[in-house]
Nucleic acid binder design. Structure first.
Lengths: 130, 130
DNA sequence: AACCTAAATAGGAATTGTTCTTGATATGAA
DNA sequence: TTCATATCAAGAACAATTCCTATTTAGGTT
């Protein structure tokens, strides 16, 4: 655990959103001004390999990193692009929710929702009134 | 509907797998040798906008395109990278499984699984026996 | 059938996000 | 100390995609 990794980890945990590598980079530079973007990528990879963070990708955009280790889904706002965590109501096995060929070895699964966040919904509503 | 779009559409429908743009490009050149990669990208975007195809992305790899319009999930084999459609028979409503802030407008959702396909599972088993 | 206009195309340059390479630096073991 | 190993910074390289521009085409209108 080097200074850089510690700093990247702290930044991820400090603001529990879903920053891109570049966003992590700009945040972490406040603490370790000499850090390079490549190192941020390396640290993020190391952290995800250790299971301390997860990657989230919204279609073709840049990879985002998620410090929330609980099982959860992601919501992507189609308008502003914000990413939100959707918690699981109760512990369920994938097999309990979906039916799939038993010949497949399922190691992990991922659920994502797309739509409009409250803020953007309010904006479009306000725009329509004009 | 231009020749190029028709050709891209036919290629997608002709082999119901999950090709990348470049794979579509190489396949479609047999029919329309003068087509350019940029045009393939354009056509694929047009088709997905029309709802005639879907995009599938496995983490950070190139985008893949899926001609299967039925509701289904995707399975990604971690070993060989193959993408398979999983008919999505959900046993529960999303609201029953996930806890949504009711302020979110959900327009669509996506489920993907990662693991090992039967073929690769057999291979590793065979390798272990040696 | 010739004409017109908006849309689509080919080709290549540019951009974006990420990974790789290299040499320097640090860390820990012998 | 000396060596081996891992990490780092900096920037080049890379892959996937998008953008740009001149040219061509589709398809509706005379």
């Amino acid at each position: 655990m080097t200074d850089q990794r510690r700093a990247v980890y702290d930044v991820l945990m400090g603001k529990r959103d879903h920053p891109t590598a570049v966003e992590v980079f700009t945040r972490v530079r406040d603490k370790v001004p000499s850090i390079s973007l490549a190192t941020v990528y390396n640290c993020l990879e190391t952290l995800t390999d250790c299971g301390l963070a997860k990657t989230v990708t919204d279609e073709r955009g840049p990879a985002r990193y998620c410090p929330n280790l609980d099982e959860h889904a992601h919501f992507f706002c189609q308008t502003c692009g914000i990413v939100a965590d959707i918690p699981l109501r109760s512990r369920r096995h994938p097999q309990d929710v979906w039916e799939f060929p038993k010949s497949l070895t399922i190691l992990r699964h991922e659920v994502s929702f797309r739509g409009v966040c409250p803020k953007c919904a309010a904006k479009t509503k306000a725009a329509k009134r004009n």
